[in-house]
């Protein structure tokens, strides 16, 4: 028997989970580099790095949940019953997350540029 199609809410949840996990990794990476280069600041090493990771995870989770719902199409399920993480859904999420990761890095690296564009 085939398992049920993942609903839109399920895709939203899975996108948020994957985005948060990826955001934690990226926050750890970039936060670690920032702390090593500029110092931990007044709140200490762990709190600064933790804030980097949490902010990155929240942002990635938010946008990736939207991306998962946008890429919403019927997926032919040929796997066993009870499988909720279909391989194709994983690939779709991975692709959405790549796009989002690139866009987010630009937003972080050049805040003034976005302000200039917004004022036009």
């Amino acid at each position: 028997m085939q398992s049920m199609q993942p609903s839109t809410v399920d895709k939203l949840k899975m996108g948020a989970i994957m985005g948060s996990a990826a955001g934690l990794g990226i926050g750890f990476l970039f936060g670690g580099v920032a702390v090593l280069r500029y110092g931990p600041g007044p709140r200490g090493f762990l709190r600064t790095l933790g804030q980097y990771m949490l902010t990155s995870a929240a942002t990635f989770g938010f946008f990736m949940s939207i991306g998962s719902v946008i890429r919403n199409e019927d997926i032919p399920l040929i796997q066993q019953s009870g499988s909720h993480w279909n391989q194709r859904l994983l690939n779709e999420n991975a692709n959405s997350s790549r796009i989002f990761a690139l866009a987010m890095q630009q937003a972080k690296s050049s805040p003034r540029k976005s302000n200039e564009v917004a004022e036009c």
């Binding site: 990826a22 990226i26 993480w85 391989q87 690139l102 890095q105 690296s109």
Partner: peptide, 21 residues
């Protein structure tokens, strides 16, 4: 380099999730 690192994180996550799946 920054973009390559971000994509490396995502590829690693995809591979790990594939293993779990």
């Amino acid at each position: 380099i920054g973009c390559a690192c971000i994509l490396a994180v995502f590829e690693g996550l995809g591979i790990a999730l594939g293993r779990m799946n």
